[in-house]
Structure formats: structure tokens, C-alpha cells
């Protein structure tokens, strides 16, 4: 309606001018931060997606170098609540629970105990899901897109995380069966009790 600006014009009110300037500063700094902040991309560029496939593993299949595009994206698959939540959904859609249960393991190894047979790096987990591993882990490269595999890997990493992450998928509207992912459930591995934690690690690779 402009009545505020009217009074400014009429008797050059420094107070209103200062308030308006402060508001503009606040909003524009919001805009700047918003521009710096990584966006929630529902549709990645096709070249960016295909580059996610190009990571290099060490000889023994453990650890390696992620693709450069992963850093360009801002490591979203382990630090972004949206991608972690998508991973959580994929975890149930692609039947991970059939072997790994709610993360405590069953036929397959547990994630929750914090014991990583191939290391906790994203590339190891992505490789495990994409290409499969000995002793029963199937390959999912023909069932999921590579972007979905990265999302799922980020979520799996969260289940077995030693420290709580800032970003985390939230709880599902289900019965609770284990500690929440966002509390770093695997830190029990470092509990110094009289007995300690003796995870049953299953067959070694």
C-alpha cells in the first residue's frame, strides 16, 4: 500500500529507512545463502548421472576413489536428508530387509554392529550393491539406477554410522525395532563394558 514509504518521503524518517534497509539485507542474505546451498535435484543431468558409475576401486574391492561429479554435487548422498530418506525407501522397496532385516542382519551381515566387511566408504558400499559380493550378496546393477544405488548406499552407511549425522532420514510410521539411524547406532561397538560387543561377523570375504 505504500503508506510507510509515504511517511519516509514526507519527512525523511531515518528510522523507517533503516528498518527497510535491514529487512532488505536480511532477505538478500537469505537469497545469497540459498544460492550457495545445494538444491534438491529430483532430475539430475544425464551426463552427471552416468559419471556416478565411474568410480575406481582398490584391487581388493575395498575403498577407492569416488567420481569427481560426486564432489561437484556436494557429497549429497551421505549429507542430505532427502537422499537419505530416498535410500531408506529403496531399502524396503528392493527387499534389503529380506537378508539384512532392520539393519541388525539375518542371512546377511548386520550393519548396526558397525563392523564393515569392505569398509565404511561410500564407494565400497556402492560397489557392493552394484556388483554384488561373495557369499550371497546379489548385484543390483540391472535393477536400480546408479543414482538410486548411491542413495541406498548413503542410507546403509547411516545405519552403521559411529557418530550421529547432522542429516538423517527420520523415523517411519512403523513399530520401532531398533535405535534410530540418526543417533549413530553403531557407536555401541566402542562401548567398554565388562563384556564388550562381540559382533558375529559372518563369513569373511
Amino acid at each position: 500500500m505504500g503508506t510507510e514509504s509515504v511517511t519516509e518521503k514526507a519527512n525523511v524518517n531515518p528510522a523507517s529507512a533503516l528498518m527497510v534497509a535491514g529487512l532488505l539485507l536480511l532477505i538478500s542474505s537469505g537469497g545469497v545463502f540459498g544460492w550457495l546451498r545445494q538444491a534438491r535435484e529430483l532430475r539430475l543431468d544425464p551426463p552427471g548421472v552416468s559419471d556416478l558409475d565411474r568410480f575406481r576401486l582398490m584391487q581388493n574391492g575395498i575403498s577407492g576413489t569416488p567420481p569427481e561429479s560426486y564432489f561437484a554435487l556436494g557429497k549429497v548422498y551421505e549429507s542430505d536428508a532427502y537422499n537419505l530418506s530416498q535410500g531408506k525407501r529403496l531399502y524396503s522397496w528392493f527387499g534389503c530387509a529380506a537378508c539384512h532385516a532392520d539393519g541388525r542382519g539375518g542371512i546377511g551381515p548386520s550393519f548396526l554392529d558397525g563392523w564393515w566387511l569392505y569398509g565404511p566408504e561410500m564407494v565400497s558400499i556402492v560397489a557392493s550393491i552394484r556388483d554384488g559380493r561373495p557369499h550371497g550378496m546379489p548385484a543390483f546393477r540391472d535393477k536400480m539406477t546408479i543414482e538410486q544405488i548411491w542413495q541406498l548406499a548413503g542410507y546403509v552407511q547411516t545405519i552403521g554410522s559411529y557418530t550421529p549425522k547432522v542429516a538423517a532420514p527420520s523415523r517411519n510410521d512403523d513399530k520401532h525395532t531398533r535405535p534410530a539411524e540418526n543417533r549413530g547406532p553403531a557407536k555401541i561397538l566402542f562401548d567398554e563394558g565388562p563384556a564388550g560387543v562381540h559382533a558375529d561377523q559372518g563369513p569373511s570375504p
Binding site: 534438491r40 536428508a81 532427502y82 537419505l84 530416498q86 542429516a167 532420514p169 527420520s170 517411519n172 510410521d173
Partner: peptide
């Protein structure tokens, strides 16, 4: 809810 609940609305 549940669209705005913890399961489906990631982030803040």
C-alpha cells in the same frame, strides 16, 4: 500427514 510427517517429509 503422513506426507508432512517424519517418514515422507525429509529435511526441515
Amino acid at each position: 500427514v503422513p506426507l508432512s510427517g517424519p517418514e515422507y517429509a525429509a529435511g526441515k
